[in-house]
Amino acid sequence: MMKSTIAAFAIGLLFGLGLCVSGMILPSKVKGFLDIAGNWDPSLAFVMGGAIGVGLIAFRFARGSPRALLGEAMRLPTNDRIDAPLLIGSSIFGIGWGLAGVCPGPAIVDLAFLDPQIVVFILAMLAGMALERTARGLFGGAR
């Protein structure tokens, strides 16, 4: 438990530094990437390339491991359905991402800049998550 907590902190630190170094924490950078019809900045494709290049190797090892190295269960996703909630939810997410220029990881990292607008974004994001949970309860969908 203690080991997992320390590891998770260090992983968050590395993940966050990656977001800082790559420029993902800057809304202008993200919007520059999404603006393919304007003055296009392809940098974020290199972020994805670097991340997936390393990720491919790690997840190949993970698939062959019955348990994680700190002893907990290997929780690889089992849901492989391509359904309406996946496509509609992801499309809604993309609209918010394009509008603000930040997604959840960079938004949390950006809290360190103590900008009230980022705090407002995070609170709205948490409200959106709670709303989705409530809607799911009302319409009887199970995750």
């Binding site: 420029g23 972020v47 670097g50 990720g55 790690a58 997840f59 090892f61 993970a62 491991s65 907990e72």
Partner: peptide, 21 residues
């Protein structure tokens, strides 16, 4: 810098799945 940051993100995600599952 984008690719370097990406490698750090991929490393973090890889360590997460391998250590914590």
């Amino acid at each position: 810098s984008a690719a370097l940051g990406g490698v750090a993100i991929g490393l973090a995600a890889g360590i997460m799945i391998l250590l914590l599952g």
